[in-house]
């Protein structure tokens, strides 16, 4: 249609005007200085961790906590990874790293799969007591872990998963279920009613609509939840401590054991290297997928 018509006579060629000089006000400078100082305060621990982990103990003993290493060494990293002791086991934090990975995947699949389907059923299908159930889930999301921990330990003993990787993974999934279900439910609630009506007329199958229509529409929330879950599972301490058995404890527990209960002369550089190694996976996710990370933590906080 439009190609028949000539360009409208009001359209004018772009005209360049001289740029105005940028103005920076005094208040802006004050704010920027303030923010920079705050940023320094926040950044200091990471900086200290990094420099300590690559210093020799000789330099550390001089007490120059903020100074750069005079001689860079990666030996503490190697020690932390391979030799650090947790209790009587001296195989480094790498044991914990692989345990954490082994816990991470099953619990991600369990928790996200379960919460997605539950959220979908509650949001898009007519379930009579959905409101009541959602309220119970909402409450459950706030319950302190200590109130359910002992019975969960006994239950996981009964179903013979206590002390295993699966035991830890299942407890993670159980604990995350209320919050994640609420997040998915709130997301799915915004799928237009007419799309669901159309799907109901076209297919009518609960699972088919889930896999073909709803799941492909979940991309964004899936990334957000994935980041939320990876971070919280990786950073968890309490579940790993009380549900992990010998040889199945996650990285945070190995780290805490090796640093807190270490005997003899303390190698602060090795401690910091071990701490950094533990912190790296979530930090990488944060620096790569920061936008989703922020969404994840806010979703995890407010929607709960």
């Amino acid at each position: 249609m439009t190609d028949i018509l000539p360009l409208s006579p009001n359209q004018k060629a772009f005209k360049e005007y001289p740029k105005k000089p940028a103005k920076i006000k005094g208040s802006s400078i004050a704010i920027l200085i303030f923010l920079t100082m705050c940023a320094l305060f926040i950044a200091v621990p990471l900086y200290v961790m990094i420099v300590t982990s690559i210093k020799h103990m000789d330099q550390i003993r001089l007490g120059e906590i903020f100074s750069l290493p005079t001689q860079v060494t990666f030996e503490p990293w190697w020690k932390a990874w391979n030799e650090v002791c947790s209790g009587v086991q001296c195989e480094g934090v790498k044991v914990g790293f692989f345990n954490s990975l082994a816990i991470l995947f099953p619990s991600l699949i369990l928790s996200i799969g379960l919460s997605m389907v539950t959220g979908y059923a509650l949001a898009l299908w007519n379930v009579k007591w959905a409101g009541t159930f959602l309220f119970i889930l909402f409450t459950a999301a706030f319950v302190p872990f200590q109130i359910i921990m002992i019975p969960l330990i006994i239950l996981s003993g009964i179903i013979k998963v206590y002390g295993t990787i699966w035991g830890v993974a299942i407890v993670h999934a159980v604990l995350a279920m209320p919050l994640l279900t609420l997040i998915f439910r709130n997301y799915y609630k915004d799928i237009p009613n007419e799309i669901m009506s159309a799907a109901l007329m076209d297919s009518g199958s609960f699972w088919r609509i889930f896999f073909e229509i709803v799941l492909p529409m979940s991309g964004n929330i899936l990334i957000v939840v994935l980041i939320l879950q990876i971070t919280s599972i990786w950073n968890d301490f309490i579940i790993g401590l009380y549900f992990g058995g010998i040889g199945t404890k996650p990285m945070t527990v190995i780290l805490a054991n090796s640093v807190i209960t270490s005997r003899g002369e303390i190698s602060y550089n090795v401690d910091m290297a071990a701490a950094l190694l533990t912190a790296i996976p979530p930090l990488v996710i944060y620096f790569v997928l920061g936008k989703f990370f922020v969404q994840g933590i806010t979703a995890g906080a407010i929607k709960g």
């Binding site: 621990p45 961790m49 945070t252 990370f293 933590i297």
Partner: peptide, 13 residues
């Protein structure tokens, strides 16, 4: 970024 760091690591630092 501190949010991405576990409380154990934060406490140790």
């Amino acid at each position: 970024y501190p949010l991405a760091v576990s409380l154990i690591v934060a406490g140790l630092v």
